[in-house]
Design a binder for these strands. Sequence first.
DNA 1: TCGGTGGAG
DNA 2: TATTCTCCACCGA
Length: 534
Amino acid sequence: MGKRIILAVDFDAFYCAVEEKRDPTLVGAPFIVYQKDCIATLSYPARELGLHKLGSVAAAVRAHPHVRLVNGESLAPYREQGKRLWTFVRAALPGCTIERLGLEEMWIDVTALVESNLAALIEADVLFKGLSEEVTDGLDQGVRLSLATAAAAPEATTGPGEFGYSDGEESSAAAPLETSFLCEDFFFQTPAHVFPTSHGATMPAFLQTESPNPEEFYLDFKLYIASHIARELMLRISLGLGYSCSMGVATNKTLAKMVGSLHKPGGLTVLISSAAREFMGVCHVHKVPYFGAKSRHTLQDAMGHDSARDGDLRVESVWQRYDRPQFSELYPPGQGDKLWALLQGEDDTPVRETGRVQKQVSIEDTYKELTSIPLAEQALQPLLESLLRQLRVDMIGDDGAWLGFPTVLRLAVRVSTGPSTVSNRVSHSHTLTSFAPFYTLPELETSRDLAALAERMRHSLVVPMLHKLCVGQGFRLTGTGPIYFQLLNVAATGVVARKPVITSAAVKPAPTGPIRSAKPARQRKMLDFYFTRK
DNA sequence: TCGGTGGAG
DNA sequence: TATTCTCCACCGA
């Protein structure tokens, strides 16, 4: 089995880039996109002041009174722009599998695309002769690389110069993108940073050396082809959409993502295949994806690191201290081996095509003075309205048809007896199919009275769920003891492909007291009943 | 299946 | 530490 070629794309300071489009006077200015007192992200000029993500907004303003502030509590504009970028990239690389990570990152499996280009280069005899006279004849002055695999879009190629970059709204949807590009510097210039840098002067080392290992030669050549494709994609994104991104090219998702972060913003970095271990060794443990706070803490405890030296823990030192069995013992069964593999730069997880529809939509807010159950009941109203609005955006396509159907409503809260007492989230779920108006009334599809629909949901579904949660946490519904709701979250989950059938049996009178949760078997029967068969 | 945890941006 | 507002995978009950 040949190794895969994976491209990781990460849009630079994405929330900031979106805000700069909304307000061009922000371009070049130090500014913060905040949520409550939290710095969600910040422009590169703001980073140069020494400010950081997740820092306190108040402290930042104290230290730098001239830093500008942009409220980023509503994620709607970022979701919308993120979707636009994704659509554009999908159109630019027809036939490639693309997985989204958050709003602003993607992995693209370009293996097949690169291999079909490699085959074409070999066939044209370009690979070993370079651009000799006989080869350049009929090739213009360079090499033409395809952005679509031969299987994906054989008929789509058009002549050079027909690709129309547009900065308009509909750029991605409108004209089909040119699926090939002339790559004039193919043999002469490294289009990317290379790790390790000793390989990267002006030409990849594999072109300069006798290759002792043909497999490695071809693998590195494929990475090199991928880097040209990546460069072209970056250019198209920049010209077509006006966004800057950084990219990484490697043989798996983790490595691609990690090298991609080496030269931000705007950088493109290729990891030479034989250097994966060397690369991982010099990385800091906290830079390894999926090696999160908890896993790191476990490791630091075991290694006797004090937390002040968090950032100093190199993967190399972990290798020196442990072998695989010793390391794995630090973690629950199964988890240790996965983390160990990650530290070796091994990651066989496939790039999974991200579906058109999310699996859940949730809306939440945090509070300081939400100190009674009736107040919390009121606070649910705007949350539910937001949820319905977002569902309309995410679950209903441009043609007005539903793309997916949520079947479960979840309410999550953080509630405690004091304003700053730490407490975990607790949640409760209830089937949405018992709330007939959700699917049967036209409000959600068309527009208007979301507020009324939200109000009905609140009364008949969500308030009883809130009561149940409160009781479960030891609070009394009529009690007078102190109660602090720190967070409320409402989510529509359990998204299925086909519309649940709401029969008259489902239209029950609103429950007046706390909902009694149905027994699992009974719930199962209800779902069977509500869904269309065949 | 539900609810909680941990990880991502 | 968790901080914000999410979305997802995974695990035990």
